[in-house]
Amino acid sequence: MNRLHRFFRTPEAIAGALILALLVAMALAASLLFPGDPQAIAGPALLPPFQDWSLPLGTDRLGRDVLAELFHGARTSLAVGLAAAAAALLIGTVVGTLAGFAGGLIDEVLMRITDAFQTVPGFLLALAFVSIVGPSLGVVVVAIALSAWTGPARVARAEVLSIRERDYVAGARVIGMHPIAIAFREVLPNALPPVLALSSVIVAAAILTEAALSFLGLGDPNRVTWGGMIAEGRTVLRTAPYLSIVPGIALVLTVLGVYLAGEGVVESSAVRRSLS
């Protein structure tokens, strides 16, 4: 309760939360408001926005409802962004905790693997992975997670290295706690806050990576995505710029919302830390 109160103290956090709430509402309402296939033809092609109130944002090159596409695209963006970020955080935290807590050879091996992943540009890695395995929603999620887990792994390891020297870890050893239990009961929960602070950046990056993959035609072909919409609109950029601008704005607002809300969370937990 108190924490929530603190979160909503800054206007940035409120703005971020509002944007995210709107996005989630869009994603949830997509199949209620637009029950049909968003990729079906709904009217004349290239209808500009605000002309026909049954198609408020107009239609694209093939006569598909842009608003319906936007709603269904929100679904894909959110699902991919959250799933990929969750996967990246999970892999990263487990690898980082094991490396930091075990030390020695295990640490060396895990961190060299992390280095290997980090030296390849993340987007190229995702691109290569999707082109080899083939585009589908699951593959895109895995591809993005593969390129994003190294950051959380490094932060988690650094945090664990400092925590494992604390008295309460020594205390857990003294009472005879098993090392695995110490790693995951005593160390990991206390190493999490700085790792979670990364999550907004990772979610935002995942949404952008997904859009970029879709833009290059490597998204799931059976789903509407904002990146795919921008790519569609590119061919008629001069005559119908709104086809690229509308999903572009949606993308920018989403990333902004995630960042602002993430900052709010970090701020409120920072206040909590300084108080205790």
């Binding site: 309460y168 020594a170 205390g171 003294v174 009472i175 005879g176 098993h178 929960p189 206390n190 205790s276």
Partner: peptide, 22 residues
């Protein structure tokens, strides 16, 4: 070793640092 630790315990200087903050 973990079983035997039951017989040999420790109390630290800073009781705040000696416990998991959560």
């Amino acid at each position: 070793l973990r079983t035997r630790r039951a017989r040999l315990q420790m109390v630290f200087q800073d009781p705040l640092a000696a416990f998991n903050p959560r």
